[in-house]
Amino acid sequence: MDTAERAYLDYNATAPLREEAARALVHALERVGNASSVHAEGRAARAALEAARAEVAALVEADPAAVIFTSGGSEANALALAPGFARPGEAGAEVLLVGAGEHPCVLDGHRFPADAVERIPLDAHGVADLAWLEARLSALTGRRALVSLQLANNETGVVQPVAEAARIAHAHGASIHTDAVQAPGKIPVSIRALGVDAMTLSAHKIGGPQGAGALVLASEGYGLDRLVRGGGQERGFRAGTENVPAIVGFGAAARLVREHLDGERERLARLGAAFAAAVREKAPEAVVFGDGAPRLPNTILFAVPGLRAETALIAFDLGGVALSSGSACSSGKVKRSHVLDAMGVDPSLAEGALRLSCGYATRDAEVIRFASVLENIEARRVRRSRAA
């Protein structure tokens, strides 16, 4: 099938590269110069790098000097989630408290001992239990904690109460990090308004290139355990020659997201409502997960009882629609979502979870294609069920 006829609805996995970001990336590729060199070419590369840093900082209302570029969101999370992470003038953490529905790069990518890590429970809607968090922090007498709570879940789209979690954390002397990679371009994101100490961003989630991300700190002066040691790049926090072309593309995408946020939020809300209506109309038995909580406007995680995710994904793909399961591991196999497990969803239903996520290039025609394919899939499921 011609790719022009396909409906790409997997933006939470990766968004298509924006044309402006691609042009910026190619232009940077065509120029020579190491950003650490003092000659004219090196200074030009440094200027492009710092311009991109300013754009990424502006996206989340941060200080450019507090933006550390990395190879992506996973590295940024690993950089922050270590015992050496410390607020200015304070000691590091002994305990890590993470949301039970965090991305695997948070659940498995931290650098704390296993016995020093605890998971913040989720309620049935996928929202973190802040009463549990406050009680646990109160019980950690004399032990400093680091909290990590994602701003928006990559599977359900549920928006977490991060600002309230930050207030609780700081009241108990803890620091707090948020993995915010899914949020920019869909909801307003401000490190100041959220009150967090650190925030993770990723270029390819907002239409920038893969291979660039950032750890954004609330200010300068934080302590970090370096992951990559060597030269003094990124103010000594991340050694290695910066990937200037990818970072420049990141900056271009960040500028576009910031400039068009209000209109895009309204458009995504309209599209999301249309997709949700299609799910309910074509598959009346479908369950939408996190439906009772605030969610990103672009994300719907749903399951139809009796429909397995593997079967549905293939059928959607053959019909020209790209979706994902609730959780796809690096090998591409489908497995049951740990997020839905943490929400207490029945395993037989969780195994059928399908995630739809739209974005900046999604159009009304893709809603129609999705609805048509879902209708066909559901008709076949009903026929099989009646014949059984």
Rank of each mutant, 00 (worst) to 15 (best):
D197W: 09
E41P: 00
I176T: 08
R119W: 10
F85I: 00
R144K: 14
N243D: 14
P104W: 11
V127I: 15
M199N: 11
F250T: 01
S331A: 12
M343N: 05
H260P: 00
L271Q: 04
V106Q: 01
G101H: 09
A388S: 11
Y222L: 03
D346N: 07
R18M: 14
L323I: 07
A350H: 07
V56M: 09
V345T: 12
L79C: 00
L107E: 05
A277Y: 03
A315F: 01
C358N: 04
S202F: 02
H110R: 01
V321M: 09
A62I: 08
V288D: 04
H170C: 10
L107F: 05
H260L: 08
R192P: 01
D123T: 14
P347W: 05
G359Q: 06
K333T: 13
G352H: 11
P188S: 09
R143H: 07
G263R: 03
A82T: 15
L307T: 11
R295T: 14
R355V: 15
H103D: 15
L149T: 02
F275A: 06
H177M: 08
H170F: 12
I120T: 02
L340Q: 02
E19V: 05
D197M: 07
R355D: 13
V60W: 03
P16S: 10
A246G: 10
V196K: 03
R238N: 12
T141Q: 11
V196R: 00
G290S: 03
E118S: 13
H204W: 13
N34T: 14
A44Y: 06
A52F: 09
E351H: 03
R119P: 06
G142H: 02
V382E: 15
V257I: 15
D123S: 13
D63H: 08
G292H: 09
A387I: 09
A342P: 09
S190I: 12
E19K: 02
F69E: 10
V228S: 02
V339F: 04
A169L: 08
V26L: 11
G251D: 05
G230V: 04
A278N: 04
T141G: 02
I187C: 01
L215E: 06
R229I: 14
A278E: 13
Q233N: 14
A171R: 11
V106N: 05
V95E: 03
I314Y: 05
M199Y: 13
G157M: 12
V158C: 07
A22I: 01
E281D: 12
L146G: 11
L374P: 04
A135S: 12
G173V: 10
F302T: 05
P88N: 09
A171K: 04
L17F: 07
H338R: 05
H125L: 02
A278S: 14
L25S: 01
A169F: 07
V158R: 03
A52L: 06
C105Y: 10
L215C: 09
G101Q: 09
F85W: 02
P305N: 02
L301M: 14
A342C: 06
A82K: 05
T14S: 14
V216D: 03
N243F: 14
R119T: 15
K333C: 15
V367A: 06
A276C: 08
G195L: 12
P209Y: 12
V189Q: 00
L313M: 08
A40K: 03
D63C: 06
R143L: 14
R226Q: 10
A274N: 02
E378F: 15
R308I: 03
T241M: 03
V95K: 04
R53H: 09
T178F: 10
V95P: 00
G221T: 02
A203H: 04
